[in-house]
Amino acid sequence: MDANEPEVERRDDVMASNRLQVDSSSGAPAVPLVIGAKESAPAPPTEVVFELLDLNVYYGETLAVRGVNLKIHKNVITAMIGPSGCGKSTIVRTLNRMNDSVSGFRVSGEVNYHGHSIYASGVDPVEVRRRIGMVFQRPNPFPKSIYDNIAWAPRILGLKRDLDARVEQALRGAALWDEVKDRLRSSALGLSGGQQQRLCIARAIAIEPEVLLLDEPASALDPISTASIEDLMQDLKQTYTIVIVTHNMQQAARVAERTAFFSLDDAGDGKRAGVLVEYDETATLFTRPADERTRGYVTGRFG
């Protein structure tokens, strides 16, 4: 029985890199997505914080992310969207060297932070992470008091002066102060999921990083907590450069000025790796995507 004939896969030989020109012949369909007020105010390109140049990420022999070129701008919220396994979390964890502890992890190409490669020899990953904060998918407060969750990192980094003020400022910055100011000494584990996630944001900003990487920060939260995190992001972007990975297209449309769409693609060798398909102003990406795959994803045809 040879019922399963080898199926010849036809694929367009599209460049897996950054699309700069809009393909006008594609005729953008009307996308039933509400784009926030940002459409009227496209973010002016600011200073470049991160520049990825032909970035490949490997886990052992497996190529996880291929040929990504991407610039992330200062004080702009940049969203990374795409189907599961497309490498968006891998990339965001590559930006602060959180993948270093994963066995077999290796990069080629450049990850430049203000023009300096963070994977150059002699770069201390501890110093990289101190400047580039991260908030994870699941709230991960330490089993310590609310106060000590915030104060722990400043203490080890030697920022002990006015610690109380620093803790208060961080909690205010994360819009949590009013809810916890009377119970700073009680365990952080007693907070609700949304409060815990805001505590983790407070913990990250207490050491005054320049960048905040948010790896699906609201995926474990209810809609109300999600809304409060999204509101918070609008406040935080005044001070921080924010990169958010999200499964949720509406969330990207609501919060981000720029959006990068990633997909799984193979380079003709049958091995699939995450590639950057399209990167643009969020409004453009959702309403007039240049790439067929982006259009398919944002209109909900796949993913």
Partner: peptide
């Protein structure tokens, strides 16, 4: 990871 991400 949370601790490492804080620059510990």
């Amino acid at each position: 990871d949370g601790a490492l991400a804080l620059g510990a």
